[in-house]
Structure formats: structure tokens, C-alpha cells
Computed example of a mutant assay.
Amino acid sequence: MDLYFLLVLVYQYKHLLEMPFKKNHESRFLPIESQSLDTKPLTLKLRPGIRDKIRSIPNWQSELRDTIEAWLQKKLDQTAQD
């Protein structure tokens, strides 16, 4: 009897257990980046207050990625010249 009750309960409230947006829903998440990102994040410790200042900048993640890529390319070019 308990199992039957549970199955009926789950069936009645199935819509609450499903994902809020089905595949190809008009309000689904769309990535901003044209290229997929690495699954492993780069973490670093900052001086106090820097994190909050960075996060206050709109679109800070994309800008920081671009800045890091430019810095890395510059360092690699300098290393190749030496």
C-alpha cells in the first residue's frame, strides 16, 4: 500500500520534479563565448578587496580571459626571442 501511494504521489507531482526548461526552450542558457571553455578552472589568491572590485565590472570574466590570453602570448613571444 505504501509503495502504491508513493507511485501515485510521484505521478501527480511529476511536473514539479522535471527540469524547468526542456531542450531548445526559448529561455534556455546560451553561452556567450564562441569557443568552449576548459572544464578545470584556474584559481589564484588575490589581495583583500581585489575580488570584489573585479566582480563589480560588467562582463568581467570575458574581459579577464582576453587579458590573460594577451598577457600569455606576450610572455611566450618574449621567451621565444631570448
Rank of each mutant, 00 (worst) to 15 (best):
D66E: 15
N59S: 06
F21H: 07
L44W: 09
T39H: 02
P31E: 05
L6I: 15
D77N: 15
N24V: 00
S34P: 02
F21I: 00
V8T: 09
T43S: 10
V10W: 00
A70W: 07
K14G: 07
P58T: 04
R65S: 11
D77G: 00
R55D: 00
P48F: 04
L16H: 09
L7I: 13
N59V: 10
R51W: 05
V8L: 09
I32M: 05
K45W: 07
L17V: 13
R55N: 09
L7N: 10
T43M: 11
T43V: 08
Q78P: 00
E63P: 00
S62T: 10
E33A: 10
Q61W: 00
A80N: 08
K22L: 09
L46H: 01
I54P: 02
D82I: 10
F29Y: 15
E69G: 08
I32S: 07
R55F: 04
L42V: 15
L30Q: 10
D2I: 09
Y13K: 05
H25G: 01
Q81C: 06
P58R: 01
K45D: 09
K74M: 04
F29E: 01
T67M: 09
N59P: 00
A70P: 01
T39W: 00
L17S: 05
P58S: 09
E69W: 06
K74I: 10
T43W: 08
D2C: 02
K75S: 06
L72R: 12
S27G: 02
F29P: 06
S34G: 12
R51Q: 15
E26F: 05
E63C: 05
L7V: 14
Q73E: 15
L9P: 00
Q73H: 13
A70S: 11
E33V: 03
I32Q: 05
D38V: 05
L42S: 07
M1K: 03
K14H: 10
W71Y: 13
F5E: 12
N59L: 12
T67R: 08
L6M: 12
K40F: 03
M1C: 02
S62M: 08
Q61A: 10
P48H: 04
M19W: 01
K22T: 12
K23S: 11
L16P: 00
G49Y: 01
F29C: 04
D2R: 07
Y13G: 03
L76V: 06
W60E: 14
L9N: 06
F5V: 05
K14Q: 10
W71D: 09
L64K: 06
F21V: 02
F29A: 13
I50M: 05
S62K: 05
L30F: 07
K45F: 11
P41C: 12
M1N: 06
S34C: 04
P31Y: 06
F29N: 10
D66Q: 13
